[in-house]
Structure formats: C-alpha cells, structure tokens
C-alpha cells in the first residue's frame, strides 16, 4: 500500500468544532433545565398555578437581573439556547437546500452572536 507518495494533501481543518461545542453546551443545558424553565417562567408563574402571581413581577425580575449570578444564568441560558438552535436551524435549512449558505450562516449563527452581545450589553446596562 503506498504511503506518502500516493496520499493527497491533508484537508484543511474545519472550524466546525467551535459551533459544535456551543451547540452541545446549549443542547445539554436545554436538556437538563429546559422543560423546568419553560414550566416555571412561562406556564406556572404567569398563570399563578403553584407559584404566586407576582413571582416574576418587575421588582423580582430586576433583582434577579441585577444579581451577578442571575446575570450569568440569564446570559448562559439565552446565549447557549440561541447557539444550539442556530446550528440546528442552519443544518436543517442546508438539508432543505436553502441557499446561499452565507445568508444561512448570518441568519443563524450571526443572529446567535448578535443576541449574545445584546444580552451581555443589556445585562451590563441594567447594572448591579
């Protein structure tokens, strides 16, 4: 069997690992905490079932967003959930033959990056 003589030049490394790790982190966070979060923030609290009606009112929400740990939680959840959805949506649209790929990348990964920066900026602006 020929060795180096018959071998094509090795392919350039892909940068996919960056997005795959973000996708994986978001997917794991969503898998462990997603259902509980949706239940608490979007179903129990607004309807007042199990949680008091004022559970996520303005003062509570603001206190959470001003707390350093709260900020980390909000940033992690929003950002990683977007990075996860971005990779899924990009690959699905690519499967469905949506083109050009550059537009798909901006519309998915680009949005996730923008939302990450915006979340960071908003949390900083809300203060401590």
């Amino acid at each position: 069997m020929s060795e180096a003589a018959g071998r094509a030049a090795p392919e350039k490394r892909s940068i996919s690992p960056i997005f795959w790790l973000l996708f994986g982190a978001g997917g794991m966070l969503a898998a462990v905490f997603g259902p509980a979060l949706i239940l608490i923030t979007d179903l129990l609290a607004p309807t007042g079932i199990g949680l008091p009606e004022n559970f996520e009112d303005y003062s509570h929400a603001l206190a959470f967003a001003k707390n350093p740990i709260g900020k980390l939680v909000v940033l992690a959840v929003i950002s990683l959930f977007f990075w996860h959805g971005a990779e899924r949506l990009y690959l699905t649209l690519k499967d469905m033959k949506a083109r050009p790929l550059l537009v798909l990348k901006f519309g998915t990964y680009g949005v996730a990056a923008a939302v990450t920066l915006a979340t960071f900026a908003l949390l900083l602006s809300i203060g401590f």
């Binding site: 929400a61 899924r88 979340t119």
Partner: peptide, 16 residues
C-alpha cells in the same frame, strides 16, 4: 432543537 432557541427568544424579549 430550534424550539430551544424560540424559548431563548421569549426570554430575550423579556430581558429587553
């Protein structure tokens, strides 16, 4: 998996 990001969007709108 895209639904995960939709929930993220709800939270983001809430933050804004």
């Amino acid at each position: 998996g895209v639904a995960v990001a939709v929930y993220g969007a709800v939270l983001f709108v809430g933050l804004v």
